[in-house]
Design a protein around this nucleic acid. Structure first.
Lengths: 335, 335
DNA sequence: TAATATATGCTCATATAGAGCATAAATAGC
DNA sequence: GCTATTTATGCTCTATATGAGCATATATTA
């Protein structure tokens, strides 16, 4: 009936926009109350490239114009979907990141913008260290580390926790995917329990939490508070966030999310929303202007409170002047 | 006979090693004198994950032990292979990077280590600016830019050249994939002409070189001097080089390529071989030691000339101490 | 008119990166 | 044994980048 080697390929898109200082992702609601990323099958007969395929069905599904598109990662986990356990079929999913300017979604389109941090609450440090970390995540991870088989295993797990969730004085905000993967493995996300239920009998090395404490761990996964997501969509979202956080430092991605003219504070708010950290305003201005990323339009903003701000536009010449123009998020921020 | 959506998935591996200050890649010789990267089909029935599939057939093919493995990118170009133009079949190829310590290859194994820069001669700046750049590449790119349709197109092309191949005083050595793609598009690589010959009639927007000058451009592609490679393997190699150059800055990848004990000069030579730039010895030592990436073993090197060097080992604790431990290649080096 | 909010200019301390000088400890050639 | 050569290693000096905060300007709101 089908070749043993062939697989179906789905494209799953993380379409991001920022409006009013809130980083948003396009999500569709499906059954079971789970939020899903928009996704579609890659049809080799119809589309010349993966990129074109993605743009085609995004347009068909949402009528949204997406500017920047970038491939993230190809996921091929066996336990990705329950159906795969029964049939011999196989499904690969290629994650994509897309950046769009804020656009109203047409009526009748089954998609909505959602705050990214409703899915990844522990990733938003703009208001200081997220409370859920100390209230639920770190204690559960510490317990997970202690549950390792032997001393070496405990040291290894403690090391992984320190590397992804930070040490006493520093954290790497970029490592969103590694934090997701650690939490999934430790059972701190609802989908870990959903997936584990499917493979309970089959030995799965993916889940390393203590099976005797599974009820307690499941309760923690609910306290952590991320909205429920379909299949591995939270993983794909985390990898998109990691990519965008890394890339804004050396490519001028943020301007894909801003109108043609903007104030420096608007620019800063977009960077903060994506990177999840609050920035020092004066230093941010100094950096942006030193890098010559923007130029004044000559106009001033009129609608806001306080002293009116000068409007700027992106200076595309910077692309050919300097090898790695980005917005300079501090690599390592204090806890 | 087959579902319209299904595709075959191949895994293509860039296995790197460094020996004697030379960065090498595992290559197999196939017909037509073209060098090929080792590759195999992904068999969903046999392998639980993409990663395991890759490790399985690498081991079967070469009996090599590969330590670090990382997915690069999934390529789905229509013109990847001549056969795809005739049949409706479709082939996706997922590129992987693997790092191995230098190992002798078993007799009878149809694979050899080759200097990476034999395939990408313009990427090695250790001995100063590569001669082929000014002799062949930059003049041909300049001509390509002038051949654009209008002034805006010329400005755009000049901008792309500056961004990828650098400006008067700086170049980003990391952008190996973008340099490949620009050269491919401009017809400066032999495979561009091989692929273009297949799609001549079908309008292809991938090749933007002046078709009236195709013979001259083809000659340049031979002067550029990269060894011929199968299909899109040079693209995958370029993306592996880009990944490794980027990642050594913030992850301790290099130690995957070194023996357990090494001198600081050996470490430096590995970084230089991968990044393609020469480094200031004293500053490199200062950086490595300040980052506490290594610790002395207490032993000294005995075999070399000159004053004996202290032997060091990787200090894995650094992974849990600091969020982004890497070897600090200068981001931007002067031309 | 005072309080508040935002914009913008400037300084200062510290950390980091780039370049080079100086010295140490081995081998190679004679 | 003496000298040249080679590599290792310690140290300094300077320029630049980063992090933090002070001070002032110009608007709106109460």
């Amino acid at each position: 009936m089908r070749d043993t080697h062939t697989v179906d390929v789905g494209l799953t898109a993380v379409i991001m926009a920022v409006s009013g200082g809130v980083a948003k992702v396009l999500a569709v609601r499906e059954g079971a109350g789970e939020h899903a990323l928009p996704s579609g099958l890659f049809d080799p007969a119809q589309d010349r490239t993966l990129n074109l395929s993605l743009r085609r069905w995004i347009m068909e599904l949402t009528a949204l114009e997406v500017g920047y598109v970038e491939q993230l990662y190809t996921f091929g986990n066996q336990y990705r979907d329950a159906r795969e356990l029964d049939v011999g079929a196989r499904f690969l999913s290629i994650g994509y990141l897309g950046l769009a300017r804020e656009q109203r979604i047409g009526t009748g389109v089954p998609a909505e913008w959602h705050d990214i941090y409703d899915y990844l609450p522990w990733e938003d440090w703009r208001g200081g260290r997220p409370a859920v970390l100390d209230a639920h995540i770190m204690p559960a991870l510490a317990a997970w580390a202690e549950d390792a088989l032997d001393g070496a295993g405990r040291a290894l797990r403690r090391g992984r926790i320190a590397m992804t969730f930070g040490t006493a004085d520093a954290i790497d905000h970029e490592k969103a995917l590694q934090r997701f993967e650690l939490m999934y493995e430790a059972g701190l996300l609802p989908e870990a329990h959903r997936d584990y239920a499917l493979v309970r009998e089959k030995s799965s090395s993916v889940f390393s939490f203590n099976k005797n404490k599974i009820e307690d761990i499941y309760k923690v996964s609910l306290e952590v508070g991320g909205l429920p997501m379909k299949m591995d969509h939270r993983r794909i979202l985390a990898s998109a966030l990691e990519r965008v956080r890394g890339k804004i430092k050396y490519r001028p991605l943020v301007f894909e999310l801003l109108p043609a003219a903007f104030t420096l504070l608007q620019l800063q708010k977009v960077v903060e929303a994506l990177s999840g950290v609050a920035l020092h305003k004066q230093n941010f201005r100094r950096l942006i202007q030193a890098e010559r990323l923007v130029e004044e339009t000559g106009e001033m903003e009129t609608t806001a409170r306080g002293r009116p701000a000068a409007l700027f536009r992106f200076r595309p010449q910077v692309l050919s002047e300097r090898p790695a123009p980005g917005v300079g998020v501090p690599k390592i921020s204090t806890i």
